[in-house]
Amino acid sequence: MPVRRGHVAPQNTFLDTIIRKFEGQSRKFIIANARVENCAVIYCNDGFCELCGYSRAEVMQRPCTCDFLHGPRTQRRAAAQIAQALLGAEERKVEIAFYRKDGSCFLCLVDVVPVKNEDGAVIMFILNFEVVMEKDMVGSPAHDTNHRGPPTSWLAPGRAKTFRLKLPALLALTARESSVRSGGAGGAGAPGAVVVDVDLTPAAPSSESLALDEVTAMDNHVAGLGPAEERRALVGPGSPPRSAPGQLPSPRAHSLNPDASGSSCSLARTRSRESCASVRRASSADDIEAMRAGVLPPPPRHASTGAMHPLRSGLLNSTSDSDLVRYRTISKIPQITLNFVDLKGDPFLASPTSDREIIAPKIKERTHNVTEKVTQVLSLGADVLPEYKLQAPRIHRWTILHYSPFKAVWDWLILLLVIYTAVFTPYSAAFLLKETEEGPPATECGYACQPLAVVDLIVDIMFIVDILINFRTTYVNANEEVVSHPGRIAVHYFKGWFLIDMVAAIPFDLLI
């Protein structure tokens, strides 16, 4: 008679799926529990143990900040960024110097990925580790590398530091407007667009060049630039800015003055950032001319202004700041037409079709709590990747769950009947059967004279019903998954307890 339990259901295979997918890609990662103190490590794979030199037993239950890997060259700011990422709910990448158990130093890129439950609360953290440099290539500990984003994938490793954006290309926007319009339909740009040429040739750093990471940081200074100062900065030398009595002219307006920039070969870094931020506020060169004239017309309804409409929906549905990093990277690809469009465009503009998908598509409701890094690593669709929660398995109709209350009560009843059979069957065979043979035949009273025979008949009927119930009862397979398919249940029961239950259900007393 089957006594099969499996009270692990309803099970959740999400954690096993993450481990299996990460292991298949030869990654070095740990999984931490966000619900406990210090976000203790609950799993670390073999790749991480080989990377740091510690065994799994030495890593388990330690804080996922990996303070046991810190050393003299470990930056405090990087460690603080990892700790801050564990307090938030967004994906974050941090470069930090770690030390192995043998004392060797290596520069590592740590990717902190939160995993949320159905309520939107962070319950786990996945920390992925990628070695960037070994100890002989690690720089000085005073050099802070965590304020910069990861290198873009479309640049060669040897040319990542030679990417320079020439400031004269930004200063000569109005001069290039006529050349853009003359391109017409034969050019790649839309009317009114501004073409910015980027020099990728390796050259020595000069005062006129600005690194790509500095251009990325310009967006942080746009908020500090007032509207009046932006307007004066875009007017140009024809209309000098008016300053109040006793007030000095704005240095932001002076930063885009061609006369002032041409007199000296070098520009201050602050002026460069502010000038680029001011130019980015204009949607095209037409807006710059309109600002000089004193009238700013409404933005025209053409394809170039609607190019950012799908980007707005993608940004609203993005799951991490990696989408913004990807957008900034692609927006700086050289030799393309940049349409400086305000994100607050007309909502009635139709979304044009684009061959290049900048932001990841909208994630469906079932995966809105899973970050983009987890979705990318697992390579699963929205119909396959579940949320991290207890999910009731989908069972067929008329199927009994093996952990249901009805099955528990039924098993206790069958257990009592088995005990009765084990006690009274030998007793009936030894004593009652002998008395029946010696006594007179009682054929007239039937079952009324033999109450134990009636009980034995009921017990046999219950055993037959138990066999039928076992054909529709779920079970737990070797992978700790609840199986509810009727065919698989029948095959599993035939290979197991079916023969024993059938022999126990045969009414031998009635056959004798």
Rank of each mutant, 00 (worst) to 15 (best):
G238H: 14
R100E: 01
R92N: 15
S153L: 06
I358R: 11
G103S: 15
A217W: 08
M291I: 04
Q247H: 06
E230W: 06
R242C: 14
D323G: 12
D213H: 15
F348T: 15
P310L: 08
R328K: 15
S283I: 05
A83F: 06
N38L: 05
R100S: 04
V122D: 06
R328T: 12
C49I: 14
L210F: 11
V198M: 05
R269E: 15
L248M: 07
R328L: 04
E90M: 09
L87N: 13
S264H: 04
N146F: 15
P205M: 06
F125M: 05
I333V: 14
A188C: 06
L338W: 05
P202A: 06
K344D: 13
F98T: 01
G314A: 12
L87Q: 15
Q84H: 03
S153N: 08
V194R: 01
G226N: 15
P249N: 10
V138F: 05
R35A: 06
Q11D: 13
L256R: 12
K101H: 03
L343S: 15
P202Y: 01
L15E: 01
V112F: 05
S55H: 07
E90W: 13
S318H: 08
N257E: 08
L296W: 14
R356Y: 08
I288F: 14
S354Q: 14
I358D: 15
P240C: 07
L87H: 15
R271E: 15
R328G: 14
I82R: 01
A382C: 12
P227I: 09
E50K: 10
S351P: 08
L127T: 01
A160Y: 11
I19K: 03
R176S: 06
V36A: 14
V194Y: 07
D199H: 01
K344G: 14
C265A: 15
E214S: 06
R5Y: 13
L165P: 14
N12F: 07
N339W: 01
R292P: 11
G184L: 07
K116M: 13
H221I: 12
D287A: 05
F22R: 05
Q335R: 08
K161E: 14
A175D: 07
D119N: 05
L210V: 15
T270G: 14
C64D: 01
S275D: 11
I123H: 09
F98H: 01
L109V: 08
T270E: 13
M291K: 08
R356M: 05
R20W: 06
I18R: 01
F129V: 01
P352H: 02
L107Q: 06
I333Q: 15
N146R: 13
D346R: 08
A282G: 10
R76C: 15
V374T: 04
T353F: 08
E214T: 15
N369Q: 11
L256S: 14
R56L: 01
L69F: 01
T174E: 14
R280N: 05
A172G: 15
K101L: 01
L170H: 15
R4A: 13
P202L: 01
P245S: 15
D259C: 11
V194C: 07
A57W: 07
A97C: 11
H70K: 06
V222M: 08
V370C: 10
S379H: 11
C64N: 01
R292M: 15
L380D: 03
L267C: 13
C44Y: 01
R326K: 13
A260F: 08
M60P: 01
E134T: 15
R281N: 07
G192W: 01
S354D: 10
P299E: 07
P157K: 15
I123F: 06
V180F: 15
A40H: 05
A79W: 01
G149F: 09
A79V: 13
R92Y: 05
P297L: 09
I123V: 09
S272H: 11
A307E: 13
A211V: 13
R280L: 10
A142T: 13
V138I: 07
Y54P: 01
R273L: 11
N369Y: 05
S209T: 15
P227S: 15
E372F: 03
T13H: 15
V41H: 01
V295K: 11
P157N: 07
G6K: 07
M218Y: 13
P2Q: 06
V36C: 15
D197A: 01
E58H: 05
V215N: 10
E208V: 06
L170N: 08
T65Q: 07
S239K: 12
S209M: 05
Q376R: 05
M133R: 12
D46C: 01
D119T: 09
C265Q: 08
V112P: 01
